[in-house]
Computed example of a mutant assay.
Amino acid sequence: MSTAAPTLSTRRILPGFRLTLGFTVAYLSLIVLIPLSATFLQSAGLGWADFWAAISSPRVVASYRLSFGAALVAAALNVVFGVIAAWVLVRYPFPGRRLVDALVDLPFALPTAVAGIALTTLYAPNGWLGAPLAQLGIPVAYTATGVGVALTFIGLPFVIRTVQPVLEELEPELEEAAASLGATRAQTLRRVVLPALRPAILTGFALAFARAVGEYGSVVFIAGNMPMKTEITPLLIITKLEQYDTAGATALAVAMLLLSFALLLAINLLQAWARRQGR
């Protein structure tokens, strides 16, 4: 009696489910869950009244507004221009395309402090771009606009690199078929291209937002760090740590964590809905 060899569909390269799940949970616990739990435990020593006072003061609320508002605006801008950039890199051959494609990853490799210094020098009132903009009445450095510029700079690669592989898999013949059936460019974009790109766009938006909301190095130089105006929450956390207010710093960290998790959960639910709609 011969026994059939196991098919490729039933073979598993890694060990069984229980063992791999155990490694996964242990690794996530060491890297993510235990540090986050320590943050919650540290802030719990304040008591509810002191905790609420630490996370709801006017200065802190103003920093929330700037951090999350600028991150949302930057991620939205990156979606628009990131999709356009990905489209150009995938659909159009042109001289220097490989160089441009490599430059997209520059914010990944560039230290954030270097990026902050470069942007501040560029957009300062006497900088190459800051001077003409200041003459037009559009100051950038040391304003909330400068914070948005820095967050847009560091978040753009996330959108491009998320959308680009999906565009490469999207056959141009689909667009040609839509055109042959009488669809306009706007109709082809709305009914053929965007439905296929929607999950990738939402993923890129979530990654760009998550990267921007906790950014510190590239923002601290260009923001000016004026309380109630251009002070971001990560800087406020650092300030409290320098003042040896560890409990207050962890309270702000917990508030940022909960707010970020709520927004990312909403984005992930929207992304799951977009996937279901695309099927």
Rank of each mutant, 00 (worst) to 15 (best):
T7K: 10
T7Q: 09
P15Y: 07
F17N: 13
S29M: 10
S29D: 04
A38N: 08
F40S: 05
Q42M: 09
A44D: 03
G45H: 01
A49Y: 01
W52H: 02
S56M: 13
S56D: 06
S57I: 06
P58W: 02
R59Q: 13
A62Q: 05
A71I: 06
A71C: 09
L72Q: 02
A76V: 08
A76C: 10
L77P: 07
I84L: 15
A86F: 12
V88F: 15
L89K: 10
Y92I: 13
F94D: 10
L99P: 13
L99Q: 13
V100Q: 10
V104Q: 09
D105Y: 00
L106S: 12
L110V: 11
A115D: 01
A115E: 00
L122F: 06
G146Q: 08
F153M: 07
E171C: 06
E175D: 14
A177V: 14
L189A: 10
R190F: 03
F205R: 09
A210G: 15
A212F: 02
G214K: 09
G217E: 05
G224F: 07
N225R: 08
N225M: 00
K229W: 01
L235I: 13
I238L: 14
E242L: 12
E242M: 12
A247L: 04
A247R: 06
M256N: 05
L258A: 14
L259D: 03
L263T: 04
A266S: 11
W273N: 07
W273I: 00
A274W: 01
R276V: 09
Q277R: 15
